[in-house]
């Protein structure tokens, strides 16, 4: 077994290191073990897809990676810094500097324009990316002065992506970003995520139940009943444009 394989197996030395993560909800008879010991390692700039059916624990794992939920056991280490050791204030600072979030629900601020919603993200960074360039990349430049309710679902999700990306986070966490979108728009969004991954080099962890998306990922992890059933690095990944489902 090569050194890289060993590291890969335990996630040790990786940019994003997930080690022995366990999580349960409820107590006594109603206790449900959602994550039963997850070990993963993701390299910087990698595009990782967490796949699995509803209740497999993928969103919970994403939330623990993002520091908005706590594990019962194990740790998350990002660039050799364990998030579990951080107090709430430091964790907030950490999210502020290093993480970007995209959700299935866009959660835009309704009375701010597209541009202003993206500025909300830019405010968090000392060196944000150029907003105009971002608006062009997201293909919403011409909509920048519109309010969210004047946009289509796809445009709203682009804005949400812009808000997450503008601070140029090390890791972009995406929770079912295409879950509420139609086929064509979903593909556009995936293409966009692929583009930013290539352009800005962010590490991307995406939760999805759409099996087709695994084809565009560098690293694919299948979860079921709180355990990793299968994980592999995708040697033959294809562009988002070519995905079909």
């Amino acid at each position: 077994m090569t050194a890289r394989r060993i590291c890969e197996k335990w996630g040790e030395g990786m940019f994003l290191e997930i080690k022995g993560i366990r999580k349960s909800f409820g107590e006594g008879d109603s206790r449900v073990d959602v994550l039963k010991g997850i070990d993963l390692g993701i390299e910087k700039g990698e595009f990782c897809v967490l796949l699995g059916p509803s209740g497999s624990g993928k969103s919970t794992l994403l939330n623990i990676i993002g520091g908005i939920d706590h594990s019962d056991a194990g740790y998350i280490s990002i660039n050799h810094e364990k998030t579990g050791d951080m107090k709430e204030k430091k964790l907030t600072q950490y999210r502020r500097k290093h993480l970007g979030y995209i959700f299935q629900m866009y959660n835009l601020i309704p009375n701010l324009t597209v541009r202003e919603n993206i500025e909300v993200g830019a405010y968090l960074s000392d060196e944000p990316l150029d907003i105009d360039e971002m608006l062009h990349t997201l293909a919403i430049y011409e909509h920048q002065y519109k309010l969210p309710n004047q946009l289509s679902g796809g445009q709203q999700q682009r804005t949400a992506i812009g808000r997450a990306l503008i601070k140029n986070p090390d890791i972009l966490l995406c929770d079912e970003p295409t879950g509420a979108l139609d086929y064509r728009t979903s593909k556009e969004i995936l293409k966009l995520i692929e583009t930013v991954n290539q352009k800005y080099g962010n590490t991307i962890v995406m939760v999805t139940h759409n099996d087709a998306i695994k084809a565009m990922a560098d690293y694919v992890v299948h979860l079921k009943d709180g355990m990793i059933r299968k994980s592999y690095r995708n040697e033959n990944k294809i562009p988002a444009q070519e995905l079909n489902w």
Binding site: I68, T92, R95, R96, L99, L108, I109, L124, R163, A164
Partner: peptide, 16 residues
């Protein structure tokens, strides 16, 4: 009413 947005902002690093 704005719980989701607040959640997103907090998750993105906005402090309390």
């Amino acid at each position: 009413k704005e719980a989701n947005t607040i959640g997103t902002l907090r998750a993105s690093g906005y402090t309390r």
